[in-house]
Amino acid sequence: MVKVRFAQAWPQLLPLDGEHGGEDYVPPSLEDFDFEGLFGTDWINKPMLQLVISVILILGLMIPASRKLTVVPKKWQFAVEYVYDFVRTSIARTTIGHGYEKYTPFLVGMFMLILINNWFGEFFYFMFPTFSNIGYTMGLVLTVIVFVISSGIRQHGIKSIRMTLMPSSVPVYLAPLVIPLEFMSNYITRPLTLTVRLFGNMFAGHLGVMVFVVGGGWLISEGTSAIGFPTAIVKGAGFGAILLGMLVIGIELFIGFMQAYLFTLLTANYISQAVSEGH
């Protein structure tokens, strides 16, 4: 194991057992992404509650807000409209073009859902990005793929599947090559990349934040000169790590937005391809 070799070479840099200081240092690991079930079940857990809370937040904000919309925006409406219009104009309209209105609700919903859940990773009391649990990301992406395929079918009927697998511009003799490729691309690669991109960013980001914050916290609270440096330097390093952790959290806020934007943009792109005439 890599970990063991590190510990043997530089025991003062990776103090894994209690022999150098107070309590054992437990580095952030996969176990930090697995939560106990609550209320005597194994499926009601923290990420699930976060999802439910995010849905309540979004609907609780958007439904009352949308009922009081005025043509000349008031102060609160300006913010809500800003988010809505961001997805509607710069994602849906620019990507899908004509007829984008039909797909705007789904896109806005996905964007807000992902954005809030990503930012949960940086918010107190939550401190966990929901989509760093791949199961929820899979559910989300499955819904997106169903939406994309059904959009194509609503637009062109069942032949939209054929249009996807065998674009009309391709000569017939290439069909044996093109159909498997398009099938791979549309029904396997796309969902897979969509899932792994969102999950991976959130997972790695959260792990990074934990390394800085948990490690820094341990150095401050448990670190002593026993690990080979003067106590002041150990504690100072802990503070430094926490400060860097704050910086990483700031970056994570941006990445959380970026991933929500990218996910929505790609979804819009897939919808656009499914409903366009030429494909």
Partner: peptide, 22 residues
């Protein structure tokens, strides 16, 4: 259950945006 909850939540958001908000 995570996958199922993900689908349910995304579907709920989709439904509510299409029906009540947009």
């Amino acid at each position: 259950s995570e996958v199922i909850v993900g689908i349910v939540v995304a579907g709920l958001i989709w439904f509510c945006f299409a029906k009540f908000i947009s």
